[in-house]
Design a protein around this nucleic acid. Structure first.
Length: 215
DNA sequence: GACCAGGCACATC
DNA sequence: GATGTGCATGGT
C-alpha cells in the first residue's frame, strides 16, 4: 500500500496528538529561542530564556543594549554562549534596523524576500530562518532539521545525501501549503525523533511509522 | 566517561 | 564544492 506524506503526518498525529508548538510566549521569544536552540537540547534553552525573562531583558531594544559579557552569562545554560550572544545581537540589530523591532511590520513582509533577509544575518541558517518564519511569524514554510533527515532517510522516503533545500522541496511539494500543517508536522517529527528514531539505539521495532511507505 | 541535543560559520584541501 | 572543525552546557 502506498502512503502519501499526508498519511505519514496523520499516522504521527494519531499516535502523538497535537504538540502545541512553538513553546514560547511571544513571537520575539520564539525568535530568540530559535537561535538559542541551535544544536542544543530545548531544556537548556528554557533555562537561558528564564534567565533573560527574570532579568527583564527579553525585548529587542533591551537585548541589543546589553553588554556581550552579560548576555553571554545569562544564556550560558544553552551552550555555545559566546557565539549565541553574538548571533542574538546580529539578529536583534537586523530586527531593529529593518523592522524597528516591530513584529507586525515583519509579518507583513513577503515570504521569499524575508527569508533571504534572515539568511543574510550572520548566525541564521536555513533551519533557524524557517523556524522564525513558521513559528514566530506564521508563514507557510516547512522546517527541516536533523530529526527530519534521520527519520525520512531511515524510512527510505528520501536519499540520505539530500541537502536542506532538497528535503524542504520534497516535503513542500507533497503537502498542502498550510501553516498549521507545517507547524504540527515538524513538531511531530521532533517528537518521533526524540522518542524512537534516536541516533544510536533507535527503537525502530516499536516506531509508529514502521511499515508506513511513502509513495 | 561517552554520547547526544530542534546549527552555523569558517578554514582547508 | 565537499569535508572537517570549533563552539559548550546539561541530561542520560
Amino acid at each position: 500500500m502506498k502512503v502519501t506524506l499526508e498519511g505519514v503526518y496523520k499516522k504521527l498525529y494519531s499516535s502523538f496528538g497535537p504538540q502545541d508548538w512553538w513553546p514560547g510566549e511571544t513571537p520575539f521569544e520564539v525568535m530568540v529561542g530559535a537561535i538559542l536552540t541551535q544544536n542544543t537540547n530545548w531544556q537548556n534553552v528554557e533555562k537561558a530564556i528564564a534567565n533573560l525573562r527574570a532579568q527583564k531583558v527579553l525585548a529587542a531594544h533591551t537585548l541589543y543594549k546589553l553588554p556581550h559579557r552579560r548576555l553571554a552569562s545569562l544564556i550560558r545554560p544553552a551552550g555555545y554562549f559566546n557565539i549565541k550572544a553574538a548571533r542574538l545581537k546580529e539578529f536583534v540589530k537586523f530586527f531593529l534596523d529593518f523592522y524597528r523591532g516591530n513584529i507586525r511590520m515583519m509579518k507583513h513582509a513577503a515570504l521569499p524576500a524575508l527569508r533571504q533577509q534572515l539568511l543574510a544575518v550572520k548566525g541564521i541558517g536555513p533551519e533557524t530562518a524557517d523556524s522564525i518564519l513558521l513559528y514566530a511569524l506564521g508563514k507557510p514554510i516547512f522546517v527541516v532539521d536533523a530529526y527530519t533527515r534521520r527519520i525520512f532517510s531511515r524510512h527510505r522516503y528520501i536519499r540520505e545525501d539530500y541537502d536542506y533545500h532538497q528535503m524542504q522541496d520534497f516535503c513542500m511539494q507533497r503537502l498542502e501549503q498550510k501553516v498549521q500543517l507545517f507547524n504540527e508536522f515538524h513538531a511531530l517529527l521532533v517528537k518521533l525523533g526524540k522518542d524512537f528514531c534516536l541516533k544510536s539505539k533507535p527503537k525502530c521495532h516499536i516506531c509508529p511509522l514502521r511499515g508506513v511507505k511513502e509513495a
